[in-house]
Computed example of a mutant assay.
Amino acid sequence: MNSPKNFSFTLLDGTTFHLCNGVPQVVLVVNTASRCGFARQFEALQKLHDRYHAKGFTVLGVSSQSFGKQESDLPADIAAAVQNKCSVVSFPITQLTAVRGKAIHPFYAWAATQVSLLGRPKWNFHKYLIGKDGQLITWFSSTTDPLAPKVIEAVEAALDNG
């Protein structure tokens, strides 16, 4: 079984984001799609990122077409579409990444083994909270607002742990 420390994603600018980069951090991994009805969550995700980033937290937006092809193909088009939804997005966003199916990204394949069937992405904006140790702490459904009290509490607890 892969250790979460081995998971990496290619960002829109072509650089690599390592889930565990040697610096303990808490990461909220969110599969995103700019043409999804839940894309309004980009703003709340940015607020969450801004609130806790200095304490070792980041949001990772994982661009995906796994649900309804609601994302552009090209990195530049994804970046423009995201900026259209939220004027300032400073958290990292990946190039297109499969979150289910035959081409599933290794992180999502691993995460599926860590949760029940209910905890797997059913649509865009599903959220996985990863702790400083690289382990999956919990998940939140697409309908859960990133600024909901249960998300805030889980992020703060993860930041305080360790």
Rank of each mutant, 00 (worst) to 15 (best):
A98V: 02
Q46C: 11
A81Q: 04
P121D: 11
A33H: 05
Q41T: 10
K85T: 01
I130F: 02
F42Y: 15
S116R: 10
Y52H: 15
L117R: 05
T32I: 14
A39P: 00
R51A: 15
D133T: 09
N161C: 08
D133H: 05
L28D: 00
Y52C: 08
K55V: 06
Q135S: 15
W139L: 08
Q65G: 08
S142M: 05
V29N: 07
Q114E: 15
Y108T: 02
W139M: 08
A148N: 06
A111Y: 01
I78M: 03
K69W: 02
A109K: 15
T138F: 07
G68Q: 13
F42T: 05
Q114K: 13
V88S: 09
Q114D: 12
Y108Q: 06
D145S: 14
L96Y: 05
C20K: 07
A81W: 04
F7G: 01
E71D: 10
S66Q: 12
A154P: 03
Q25C: 10
K85C: 11
S34C: 09
I104K: 09
F107V: 01
L12K: 10
V99C: 08
L129E: 08
T16Y: 06
A148S: 11
F9G: 00
G131N: 05
R100Y: 03
E153L: 06
D77M: 10
V26F: 04
T16S: 03
Q70V: 04
F7M: 13
G22R: 01
F107C: 01
P24G: 12
K122H: 06
D73K: 13
S90N: 14
F91P: 01
L96D: 03
N84R: 15
Q46S: 10
T16R: 10
A157V: 03
R51S: 12
G22M: 03
G37C: 12
N161V: 02
H126K: 06
Y128A: 05
I152S: 07
D73S: 12
R40V: 15
Q95F: 06
Q25H: 13
V23A: 07
G56H: 07
A54T: 14
N84C: 10
G162M: 11
N31I: 02
R40L: 10
F91R: 03
K5N: 14
G162N: 10
V30L: 01
N21A: 14
Y128V: 05
T143R: 09
A103Q: 15
A33T: 07
F7K: 00
P4V: 01
L60N: 01
P146L: 09
T138L: 07
G37S: 11
Q135M: 13
W123M: 02
A81H: 04
R35M: 10
A157C: 05
